[in-house]
Each structure stands twice: as C-alpha cells, then as structure tokens.
Amino acid sequence: MRHLLILGASLLLAACGGQSPTPPPVAAAPTMDVAPAVASTTAAATISGEQAFAMCSACHSRQAGAPQRMGPSLQGLVGRKAGSSTGFAYSPALQASGIVWDAKTLDTYLTAPTRMVPGTRMVIAVPDPARRQALIEYLSTP
C-alpha cells in the first residue's frame, strides 16, 4: 500500500512538472486614455476623507475636547497657526515654523513633514496625492 502511495505521488509530481504544449496568451499592457490630471481626480473620488483619516486616527483625534493622543487634536486645524493648540507639547521646530495651516501648506507638509519642518516629531508622510487631497478636504470641514 505504501509503495502505491509513493508511486502515485511520484506520478502526480511528474505530471505537474511537465510543460503545456502552448504557453497561455500574454495580456496586452493596459493603456491610459485619460490625462494624468483627470486620472488623479478620479482616484480622489474613490477614497473618502474619513477613510483617509483612519490612518491618522492612531495618533490624532478630530473631536473637540477629545483627550490628546500621541499627536494633537486636528479639530479646527485649517486656519490655525502650527504648534498653537493648547494642551499639546509640540516640537520647538513646529512652534517656530510660523506656518498657518491651509490646503497648500497641508499638502506640502503631508507629502514630507520632516522636509518642510526639519525637527518636527511628525514623521508619517502621505505620499499618495489622492489620499492627501481627500484628507485635506476632510480636515477643512467643521
């Protein structure tokens, strides 16, 4: 019986190792018939601001009066001077930056926080432009 199992397994392995007479057809590379600006706008529509903020919520809240986490609350962020929310110990670099948060400064900061403000404690970047745009729009709403 044992010999039959070994023989069957050997035949199965031999059959699996063989090559088919004709290889499967290769699919053509996808083409892009929309301009890049249109493509990124379409991609932004596929993610909500709340979904984009989900990764931020590990360190930040968006509720007024919520306890501080590893990062400050982002409630009312747009229009606020960087490093000015009470109750959070910001890095000296962010406090001295003079930044007032708006869509443009948030876009630059979220792309590479330590490049915009060397010495900031925020090290998490949002490299995807569509996710960044959705996040900025979400943070801009009350």
Rank of each mutant, 00 (worst) to 15 (best):
residue 92 P to S: 11
residue 8 G to V: 15
residue 17 G to R: 08
residue 106 L to V: 11
residue 91 S to K: 00
residue 62 R to G: 06
residue 137 E to L: 03
residue 9 A to H: 08
residue 105 T to W: 07
residue 86 T to M: 11
residue 121 R to T: 11
residue 67 P to I: 04
residue 116 M to R: 08
residue 74 L to M: 13
residue 97 S to I: 00
residue 135 L to T: 03
residue 118 P to R: 12
residue 75 Q to A: 12
residue 66 A to D: 07
residue 4 L to Y: 14
residue 80 R to K: 15
residue 133 Q to E: 14
residue 98 G to S: 05
residue 16 C to K: 14
residue 65 G to K: 06
residue 106 L to Q: 06
residue 54 A to Y: 12
residue 81 K to W: 08
residue 75 Q to G: 00
residue 132 R to P: 09
residue 15 A to K: 04
residue 69 R to D: 02
residue 80 R to L: 09
residue 105 T to R: 07
residue 13 L to I: 10
residue 28 A to R: 14
residue 63 Q to F: 07
residue 7 L to P: 02
residue 85 S to M: 15
residue 23 P to I: 00
residue 51 Q to I: 00
residue 109 Y to T: 02
residue 141 T to A: 10
residue 24 P to C: 01
residue 93 A to D: 01
residue 35 A to H: 14
residue 24 P to S: 00
residue 123 V to E: 04
residue 129 P to S: 04
residue 5 L to S: 03
residue 70 M to S: 11
residue 20 S to D: 11
residue 97 S to R: 02
residue 45 A to N: 07
residue 102 D to E: 11
residue 65 G to L: 10
residue 40 S to V: 15
residue 134 A to F: 03
residue 140 S to L: 05
residue 73 S to Q: 10
residue 22 T to L: 14
residue 47 I to G: 00
residue 63 Q to M: 11
residue 32 M to C: 11
residue 128 D to A: 08
residue 104 K to S: 15
residue 141 T to D: 04
residue 80 R to G: 03
residue 135 L to I: 07
residue 128 D to W: 07
residue 53 F to S: 02
residue 68 Q to H: 10
residue 38 V to R: 15
residue 142 P to L: 10
residue 27 A to T: 01
residue 75 Q to I: 05
residue 7 L to H: 07
residue 4 L to C: 09
residue 11 L to E: 07
residue 14 A to D: 06
residue 79 G to V: 00
residue 78 V to H: 00
residue 61 S to N: 14
residue 139 L to E: 02
residue 97 S to E: 02
residue 7 L to I: 15
residue 79 G to Q: 06
residue 48 S to A: 02
residue 38 V to S: 12
residue 41 T to F: 09
residue 3 H to D: 15
residue 34 V to H: 05
residue 36 P to K: 09
residue 105 T to M: 09
residue 135 L to Y: 05
